[in-house]
């Protein structure tokens, strides 16, 4: 009798894509597509994931997929969604955006705001690798404090990026949408679960997935998931849901790790351990983590109520 492949092994992002070994975002997409299954339309912003998967004539996508430009992906997705509606094909599949942090929190912001405000049945998923990695690690609005990038390098007068991350999930939630969630490639099952929730609502949903880039961040390719987990264990990346405007299901950090444990594994923060004044900066980052844990608390951990759509 013939051996059969497990359903979970069906890979809708095919092998042979040209992502770097150990790519966090590629891993994110594998998990997203396992959650959505084949009945999905993907609109992909310009960026690493677009480039590694769609060099003519080779496509890694086994689902209908479109790339148009960098900043217009939410609008393209809106177009797919209304077209399906107009053509009576809405049952065919869910429309999902996949975009990086630059395409989301910076240049894509206006189109996203429009899509969320208009209430399109689109699940927007941002893979957050915290800089413009496609073009070689330039600073984005999602780059964390003190990360050295090529446009926010450390130097005699610089500790690296001088601003903390833009709080995009809060901006998305401010549109009054029913489902906002953060997750991490360090927790593939949490990620899958949240994608499934995001696509189950029939109105806009926003997800931001922390997805380490071993090249840009400077760590060994084997440690992608480990680093992602450390971001959560230190309190630098919070995992939560905002359902119908209410913060719920914050992932508890039981033994908070000192931020150094996370920072020291990455070349982008290496200067903090060598420069005079670096220790004070590490303290600042520790404060950010502590504040995160204070800010994202819910009295009781409860399952989110029915998501209003």
């Amino acid at each position: 009798m013939q051996a059969k492949y497990d359903e979970q092994s069906i890979d809708l992002l095919a092998s042979g894509h040209k992502a770097c070994a150990g790519c966090g975002p590629a891993l994110t997409i594998q998990a997203i597509l396992r959650a959505t299954g084949a009945n999905v339309f993907v609109a992909n912003a310009t960026g690493c994931m677009e480039i590694i998967s769609s060099q003519y004539p080779q496509s890694a996508w086994k689902v209908p997929w479109i790339h148009s430009l960098f900043e217009n992906t939410a609008a393209v997705a809106s177009g797919i969604e209304v077209a399906l509606k107009a053509l009576g094909r809405s049952e065919e599949g869910k429309v999902v955006v996949i975009a990086g942090d630059g395409g989301t929190v910076d240049i894509g912001m206006q189109a996203i705001s429009g899509m969320l405000e208009r209430g399109h049945n689109v699940c927007y998923i941002c893979y957050d690798n915290e800089a413009y990695m496609n073009t070689g690690n330039q600073r984005s609005g999602s780059t964390p404090l003190d990360a050295s990038t090529t446009t926010s390098p450390f130097g005699k007068r610089s500790f690296g990026n001088d601003r903390p991350k833009k709080n995009m999930p809060a901006i998305a939630a401010a549109h009054g949408i029913s489902y906002v969630a953060t997750s991490s490639v360090g927790y593939p099952r949490d990620l899958t679960k949240k994608v499934q929730k995001g696509i189950s609502v029939s109105s806009p949903a926003y997800l931001q997935i922390h997805a380490p880039c071993n090249i840009g961040w400077g760590f060994d390719s084997a440690k992608t998931i480990e680093i992602a987990r450390l971001a959560v264990e230190t309190g630098l990346w919070m995992m939560y849901e905002i359902v119908n405007g209410e913060l719920v299901n914050v992932m508890k950090v039981r033994n908070q790790q000192p931020v150094e444990e996370y920072l020291k594994l990455q070349k982008r923060f290496a200067h903090l351990f060598k420069m005079p004044g670096g220790d004070a900066q590490i303290k600042l980052i520790q404060e950010l983590a502590n504040n995160n844990l204070k800010k994202y608390t819910v009295e009781t951990q409860k399952e989110a109520g029915e998501i209003q759509t």
Binding site: Q2, A3, K4, Y5, D6, Q8, D11, A19, Q30, A31
Partner: peptide, 14 residues
């Protein structure tokens, strides 16, 4: 679940 390249397959013998 941790392979970005879909290079690990689960196969169930029957």
């Amino acid at each position: 679940e941790s392979c970005p390249d879909a290079a690990i397959h689960k196969r169930e013998l029957t």
